[in-house]
Nucleic acid binder design. Structure first.
Lengths: 217, 217
DNA sequence: ACGATAATATGAGCATGGTCATATAAAGCC
DNA sequence: GGCTTTATATGACCATGCTCATATTATCGT
C-alpha cells in the first residue's frame, strides 16, 4: 500500500488538526490517541506511524507555533536600543503565537520543552537550538561577545520559567508575565554586562560603547 | 479491618523502601505500581490507599530528601560573608541529600517540582514554600528587605534549572553544576542588589553597609 | 493488463496506572 | 466469647498509550 507523499502530508495535517481541536476542547489527558485517530479518520495504530508518541504530537504543535514566531522575528531584523528590548520583542512575539496553547503549557513544558531535556523529540531540541541561536545573534548585534554555554543555559532556564509563569498567570491581560519578563531580562542582560568580554568584531550600535555596566534598564 | 497507626506507618515505610529500591534498580518507568505493591507485600489496590498516584510516591521520596537537608541547614545558622555564599551552601547541601535520586531528577522535576506547578501534591508545594522561606530569611540576615514575589519566582526558576542541569551533568564530580550554581547565584544576588530597597530592620553583618551595588562577586 | 513487491494501514492485544464494589478482620460492646 | 461496626485490604476491572503480526493496496516491471 504505497501512498503518495501528498496523501501522507495530508494525513499528517489531519492528525495535527484533530489534535489541536481535541486539545482545545478537552485538554491533554482527555485527548486520547484513539480520539485523535478517529477524528483524523485513521486507525489507532496508524497514528503511531506518523508520531512516535502522544507527546510528540503536542511537541509538534508547540514547535510549529514557536518556529512561526521565530520566522517572523527573523524577518524583522530591526535592532532596538538595548538587548533587553530586542529579547523582549522576540519573546513577546513567541507568546503571541503560543496563545492558543497557553492553557496547556504545563504539559508542553513537562513533555517537550524541559531544559537540557532528555531530548524526547528532534522537534524540541531543534526548537531550543534555534531559539538560542537567535539570542546569540541578537546579543552579538548589541556588542556582546559569543555567549558562554552557561549564559545560554541560564537564558533557557529563565525562558522556561517565564513560560511556566505565563501558563498560570491569572492577571487580566497576563501583564504580570510581561513584568516578570522585564525583570528576567534585566537580570540576565545585567549579568551578561558584568560577565561577557566585549566583542570587537560585533556591530556596535550608533558608535556608543555598548558595554558600560552602569545603567539598570 | 481496623489497623493500628503503627501498622499503617510500617506499611507506608515498606512502600517507600520498595519504591526507593525499585527506582534505583530499574528507573521510574520500569518501576510499576504492581512491582512496588508486591515488594511491599500488599495488593495493588492497597498501594493507592497510601499514595494517590505513582508520582506521589516519588514526590514523597524527593520531599523527604530535601526536607532532610533543610533541617540540617536550619541547625547550622552560621552567617557567611555574602548571601551568595550562604545560598550556595544551602543548595549544595540539598544536592548532597538528593544524590541517590540524581539520575531520576528529570522525572521528579516534571512530576512534582515544576515551578508554579499545578500543585500535584501537598508535599511538593510545602517543599517549595519551605525552601523559599529559607531563602527569604537568609536574604534578610544579609540586609535585604523582604523579597518580592518576582524575586522568589526568579529564584525558584533558577533553582529548578540548576537541578535540571545537575541531573544530566556529565562532568566527573558534577563540578559543572557548581560552576552554574555560582553564576546563577551571582546573577540573582547581583540583580537583587540593584532592585531591592535596603531593609533597616535587618541584621546587618559587621556594620558594613550591605547594599552598595558595586562589586561583582 | 497483470502479477510481484513492498510501503503503509489496521486493530487485536499488551502492560500500565488507577478505581471500586466487595471481602476481611480488628476494635468495641454486651 | 459472640456480635456489630467500620476502617482497611483486595483484586477484578477499566481506559489508555503503544506494539506488532497481518492485511491491504499503490506502484512498478513486464
Amino acid at each position: 500500500m504505497r501512498v503518495s507523499a501528498q496523501t501522507k502530508a495530508a494525513t499528517r495535517d489531519r492528525i495535527l488538526q484533530a489534535a489541536r481541536q481535541l486539545l482545545a476542547e478537552k485538554g491533554y489527558e482527555a485527548m486520547t490517541t484513539r480520539g485523535i485517530a478517529d477524528a483524523a479518520a485513521i486507525a489507532n495504530g496508524t497514528l503511531f506511524n506518523y508520531f512516535a508518541t502522544k507527546e510528540a504530537i503536542i511537541a509538534c504543535l508547540a514547535s510549529e507555533a514557536i518556529a512561526e514566531s521565530m520566522k517572523k522575528a527573523d524577518a524583522n531584523d530591526r535592532i532596538g536600543e538595548s538587548l533587553e528590548e530586542d529579547l523582549f520583542a522576540v519573546i513577546a512575539l513567541g507568546l503571541r503565537n503560543l496563545k492558543p496553547l497557553r492553557k496547556h503549557m504545563p504539559v508542553l513544558l513537562e513533555t517537550c520543552l524541559s531544559p537540557l531535556a532528555v531530548s524526547v523529540s528532534d522537534e524540541s531540541t531543534s526548537l531550543r537550538v534555534n531559539q538560542l541561536e537567535a539570542v546569540e545573534s541578537l546579543a552579538r548585534k548589541h556588542g556582546f561577545g559569543p555567549l558562554s554555554a552557561t549564559a545560554l543555559q541560564l537564558y533557557w532556564t529563565l525562558y522556561i520559567g517565564l513560560l511556566m509563569f505565563w501558563a498560570s498567570d491569572k492577571s487580566p491581560k497576563q501583564e504580570d508575565t510581561l513584568a516578570l519578563m522585564d525583570d528576567s531580562l534585566n537580570m540576565f542582560v545585567g549579568w551578561l554586562r558584568t560577565e561577557m568580554p566585549d566583542d570587537p568584531t560585533a556591530i556596535k550600535p550608533k558608535g556608543v560603547s555598548p558595554w558600560p555596566p552602569s545603567q539598570t534598564s
